[in-house]
Design a protein around this nucleic acid. Structure first.
Lengths: 222, 222
DNA sequence: ACAGTTGGTGACTCAATAGTCATTATCACG
DNA sequence: CGTGATAATGACTATTGAGTCACCAACTGT
């Protein structure tokens, strides 16, 4: 097939772009392209060739900025999750209302940011490839999970201190409160093709369970 | 090109197993070997060569009995989970006591059978490779998940009918009740290397959350 | 303008392994 | 026994894609 194109302005895939040296902009662009590819394909199936194509560069260029595929994934993961987590943390710290409302806020945000966006598929990579590529699970554990867990713990302890939440086994392992969101994320990326369950329905059941499970008294409207 | 079948690689006094024709016994042996390999390595990383070695046969023999790697995985999955699920179902159907105790029984068994054994890693395969190999997620959805969900629904409806459980959003999507076990399984196969959390601790928090979340009145000892 | 620096390239190497198939060994049966 | 049907074999094919590197060209400073 011919590789000449009559119009240089149009940019079909086979158009040969001129080289550009853009040291500053590359990393962010590669990370963004990687995020999209990892989201669509998962870690193992994502091809760096495609990441490069999406970023408008050649494969070799990726290696000027990232050690390996794993390093790229880690950068992509952190680039998205860290700001999100910081945002939630700020919102929690400044929250003036009841712990019930705080928990509602937290879970709602989780569904918006995680389950509702394309971010949930990064979870698949951590589960799928975490065992074989410890870099991945370790980064997630150290830089994300630990932060999320301490945040959750703060919320639960706040509720107990204010006499709103029960203490007990849940307070000993607060992450179980968030488990239905994990389930929702897995459902969406694995079984949605057979039976789609809207995030709102998961959120409603989740809130119902979590609030009754934690509150000293029945929640509003429950 | 004629294939030269040089016999020169004779095992010098090595223990070369003699061939045996065992049409009946092979499938079960291959399934068992596959289960072990999939458990250790996951789907993608499990090598059929190793499955064969474990079963004491050559790789090609696997293909006399199974269409593909996916078909083998499906057979392995069903061979283990189906009896387990049937056992739980029988126990639930015959259960005479309160719904609180029934839920305790169910969750305890899940932790024993799933999280506590090596079975939880099959979950990884479903999550990890389900998107790329629909055979896998479909088999799980149709033959296991649907059964498990209807079982759960029966339990919840029984509790509501007996005036023990609340109706509400949780009853609309009962699978959220089981989510912490999913989290426990994922934790164990992904993060246990960094921080091991005993199943009993997960189970305690899980029961605490689920019972308070579902019961009309506070649970025993809670 | 020009040469030196360095970002950018993509053909190539290398490894891994699912699946095939011509060949060989076993065994049931006459 | 002898032999035909077929279970079993494993060398081989085909494919895929991560990572490399010798070369190329866009920029920079003078």
């Amino acid at each position: 097939m011919t590789r000449k194109s009559q119009k240089e302005e149009t940019q079909p895939a086979d158009q040969k772009r001129p080289r550009r040296r853009r040291k500053e902009a590359r990393p962010a662009e590669i990370v963004e392209a990687g995020l999209l590819e990892f989201s669509e394909k998962g870690f193992a199936a994502a091809r760096l060739e495609d990441v490069a194509a999406r970023a408008g560069i050649a494969k070799g260029t990726i290696y000027r900025y990232f050690e390996s595929k794993e390093a790229l994934f880690e950068a992509a993961l952190l680039s998205r999750v860290t700001p999100m987590l910081d945002g939630v943390e700020a919102a929690v710290d400044a929250f003036p209302g009841s712990s019930e409302d705080l928990l509602r806020l937290l879970l709602t945000r989780i569904y918006e940011d995680m389950v509702g966006s394309d971010l949930h598929v990064l979870l698949r990579v951590i589960i799928a490839d975490g065992a074989r590529f410890p870099t991945i699970s370790e980064a997630y554990y150290r830089r994300i999970l630990s932060k999320g867990r301490s945040l959750l713990r703060r919320i639960v302890e706040r509720g107990i201190a204010r006499g709103e939440f029960r203490s007990g086994a849940v307070a000993d392992l607060p992450m179980v409160v968030v488990a239905p969101a994990l389930m929702a994320a897995i459902w969406r990326m694995t079984f949605a093709r057979y039976e789609s369950i809207p995030p709102e329905r998961f959120l409603a059941a989740h809130l119902d369970l979590a609030l009754h499970g934690l509150l000293e008294r029945a929640p509003r409207g429950g």
